[in-house]
Design a protein around this nucleic acid. Structure first.
Lengths: 189, 189
DNA sequence: AAAAAAAGTTGCTCTATATCAACGTTTTGA
DNA sequence: TCAAAACGTTGATATAGAGCAACTTTTTTT
């Protein structure tokens, strides 16, 4: 099993080498170019992705054509449109690589088969969902209750790597503001 | 087991009567008055709640003293501050009943014991987390990408009962706008 | 049933952020 | 490596929604 995925498992659960190796074949390595799409709006999501290097962005495009970024998965994280993966409905969001990235892919049926039948994967999935719950709870209160400047300061503190690696346009779409406002806020920090 | 909770389980999973009855003693029935708090900011959440009648609201208070409502649990739904329940950290949000309510409570240790050891409860918990993921994904895009009027229209369509049962003040805090703006929007619908 | 408190409405004003446009800088890809 | 495209910055202007105050209506308490 790829060492980054191995660490991910071992950090969260008790699991022996043999079991880890038995899970390994379910994950296929794949390289994606910068700005390549893994899923587009309207398509049904068929894979869960684990980022080995680079990063993936989940975003949607609203009626006015503006992008809203919901989540960035950096190396060592799973990232996919779970809503579409779970429901089988067409996705309302896109998955795009923001850098040349290496990822492990596991298909939907294999993934949910393992969730049902491998306690280790069941626990991993639970952890993914719990982490998502925790971050989105904070995110909702943040979007509802803070102004742009405070959201920016919070992000700078919590996720400084975002500012080294992502364009202002993407950061703005993550903060829920325009690139113009972000540019002005940064100038005044 | 209380018939509403029983239906909740049976709608989601295969489970026999005997097993259901064995789970029943973990849930204690409780009546709460209108506007009573089950959890306050700063306290560690120790229970998961299942609403039999009435409703619970999860909300936080921001720096300026304004309330932001994240979720309303009506009858037949689980509702708690999972973030605090999972992490054991003090809650950043309040849990309050908005009506005279009857609820079932299960304490944290029992709940997570059952999640680990009863496949039925494991599956229920997974479903709760998955549903939360799906609704919050939509909610984030909604907060980021729509104006107040469209958020209001969406809510009127998706959750009309909210408008029959909750005050405008609460609805406004759920939409992320002031009660003044909500009042004006409703006048212009 | 009366008094008090809370919630809802609406006019006026203010402010944060969006929008548009112009221009310099960086990145991309042929 | 050079042209084209995308990105970033900044000024001027527009606008959605906030904040405040006064008033009415509804709800709660006694």
């Amino acid at each position: 099993m790829h060492p980054i995925l191995k660490s991910y498992f071992q950090d969260l659960i008790q699991i022996d080498e043999e079991k880890l190796e038995s899970l390994s074949p379910f994950f296929k390595e794949k390289t994606v170019k910068k700005n390549e799409f893994l899923l587009r709006e309207g398509e049904v999501c068929k894979f869960n992705y684990f980022v080995l290097s680079g990063c993936l962005r989940l975003f949607s495009v609203n009626k006015e054509g503006l992008e809203n970024t919901r989540y960035i998965a950096f190396e060592g994280k799973f990232g996919t449109s779970f809503t579409s993966l779970i429901t089988g409905d067409p996705s309302i969001e896109y998955i795009q690589s923001l850098e040349k990235s290496t990822i492990l892919t596991i298909n939907k049926d294999d993934f949910f088969y393992l969730v049902e039948n491998e306690p280790a994967v069941n626990k991993i999935y639970r952890n993914i969902l719990e982490s998502a719950y925790i971050t989105t709870q904070k995110r909702i209160y943040d979007l509802q209750g803070s102004d742009s400047l405070n959201r920016l300061k919070w992000l700078l503190k919590q996720q400084p790597r975002i500012f080294n690696r992502l364009s202002n346009k993407v950061i703005a779409s993550y903060l829920g503001i325009t690139q113009y406002t972000l540019s002005r806020l940064k100038a005044n920090l």
